[in-house]
């Protein structure tokens, strides 16, 4: 049972949040993880999510927005079901990161931070994701895919389209 009446989150997530705010020496420490988990469930951090999280943590909504806008993984607009994040930072760039990005743009028909009309994929160019030695690399939602080639990307996209990819949760 959630401590917040009419929670906008699923009962499981609400219960998780109830717990999360209690484990730290300071309630507010739960903020960044909560925002991520809220995004995972809702697809983005909505105004309603901001309001409920502010209430749970006992801080102002403005404070939540200040923090929310700082972190680049958090977004306030929906993305696709599968958010494709292509790294183009130095190690990936040297091994074809931009080719992969271009390939994704072409295949998905979208640009940076855009979502395909069917809502299945969205695309994002990201900074180094910590897969430099296996470059070029990308993440689809939280899953890493490395040593990419355009052909490998095609296979991956097909897998996701066929529902074999993992959801965020």
């Amino acid at each position: 049972m959630s401590t917040v009446a009419n929670s906008i989150f699923s009962p499981e997530l609400a219960a998780r949040f109830d717990h999360l705010v209690t484990i730290y020496p300071l309630r507010r420490s739960a903020l960044v993880p909560m925002l991520l988990y809220a995004q995972d469930e809702l697809g983005y951090v909505s105004d309603a999510a901001v309001a409920e999280i502010a209430e749970r943590i006992e801080i102002l909504e403005l404070d939540v927005r200040n923090v929310l806008s700082y972190y680049s993984m958090l977004r306030t607009k929906p993305a696709g079901k599968y958010n494709v994040q292509v790294c183009t930072n130095i190690s990936c760039m040297l091994r074809g990161g931009y080719e992969i990005l271009d390939h994704c743009k072409k295949t998905l028909g979208v640009g940076h931070k855009e979502t395909a009309p069917d809502g299945v994929f969205s695309l994002e160019e990201v900074e180094c994701i910590g897969a430099c030695c296996w470059a070029p690399a990308m993440q689809i939602n939280y899953d890493f895919h490395d040593d990419l080639t355009p052909e490998k990307v095609d296979v991956l996209f097909q897998m996701y389209r066929d529902g074999q990819g993992k959801d965020v949760k």
Binding site: L26, P33, S72
Partner: peptide
């Protein structure tokens, strides 16, 4: 716990801020 995308949070005191739920 995890962060949410910010290189600067690797700096030790920024990491503490992040862990305290701040920018």
């Amino acid at each position: 716990q995890t962060g949410a995308g910010a290189y600067e949070v690797g700096e030790e005191s920024a990491l503490m801020e992040s862990l305290e739920g701040k920018r």
